[in-house]
Design a binder for these strands. Structure first.
Lengths: 174, 174
DNA sequence: TCGTCATGGGTGACGTGTCACCGACACGAT
DNA sequence: ATCGTGTCGGTGACACGTCACCCATGACGA
């Protein structure tokens, strides 16, 4: 292996391209979706998760796991979306300190209207560039990295992943 | 081809994994970098671009092109970084309405200290998961998508890419 | 010479994300 | 009993990103 303290030419290209492609694709899609529907990408992600849940309803922590967001971010997001009438909070009978988030009628309409547009953008900016082989290699690559991340999180004693206490810094010197 | 108005199973996995992997890797690296150096990812990107420029100095618009950021975002970022002493604005003698951004001494120290840590994080959270074959396929995939995006931007009459006027919406119905 | 348009850059307001911290509840050990 | 500790969720302050808009300069044609 080359010097592990630096990135070689190929690694640089891979890493910077990885960032650049994501940023470019996401920003294009987000901008168009925002213009056409008034929904941000975060709005859309929440609506999709809720729409796929039974009854259009999820516990907050389930939504948090589904989106892999930080707790506070989700709280703020729900608050904003609730103020716009897209979702509603509901108390949880089983767990007195828990809460549900439910898709409202307006939320259903919003996600129903936005989904085909969003798909069209994803196709246009992303899949139209890819051959069928690319899709499979991408799936493989994604799974590989995600598996690695989950494993690292486990062996770190869950020190780093989205948790409330700031990650202990001792994991940089194992 | 399947129904272009929706994403099939494989496409869903590829797309959602694409987003999930990026978000997960970037957030981990950003968090660690922030804790260890006080630099955000945006700070780091600006410092890297400047450190690679001759004299540690760039015109604002060059920095904008290098990072593929929106104009205003960069202005705010520079303002904040200047207030922290990491960079400094300088007038441009050739173009009276232009401006340079220069790395300060503190900026050099910051990027010098942060770079090896950042590389270590990238290696840990990203390259350690990848085999050597993955790197090449990733480079290929990145280049493919970026080429496609640039081409789409061109044929759209530069309607969509980071520009000041909001992208004209007529590009959804070509 | 006077509009007009393009370019380089900035400002202020507002929506979004993160950090530090809090409150309510459950559960086990002392 | 009460004391930590973990979970579920929220709040407020602040940093970041975007949108709408502005100013200054220069090129160019009427």
């Amino acid at each position: 292996m080359t010097d592990p303290g630096w990135l070689d030419e190929r690694e640089q290209r891979a890493w910077r391209g990885f960032l650049a492609v994501n940023a470019a694709v996401r920003s294009r899609i987000a901008r168009q979706l925002q213009q056409e529907t008034g929904l941000s990408s975060a709005d859309y992600a929440v609506l999709v998760s809720l729409s796929e849940a039974p009854g259009g309803r999820l516990r907050v922590f389930q939504l948090r796991v589904a989106a892999d967001w930080e707790k506070t971010r989700l709280t703020h997001q729900i608050t904003r979306m609730a103020s716009r009438g897209l979702v509603a909070r509901e108390p949880c009978p089983d767990d007195p300190r828990g809460a549900f988030v439910r898709l409202t009628e307006a939320g259903w309409e919003a996600i129903t209207a936005a989904a085909p547009l969003h798909v069209a953008h994803v196709r246009r900016w992303f899949f139209d560039a890819l051959g069928p082989g690319h899709v499979d290699t991408l799936i493989d690559l994604n799974d590989t990295v995600l598996r690695h991340l989950r494993e690292a999180d486990r062996t770190d004693g869950a020190a780093c992943p989205p948790c409330d206490v700031p990650p202990s810094c001792d994991d940089v010197l194992p």
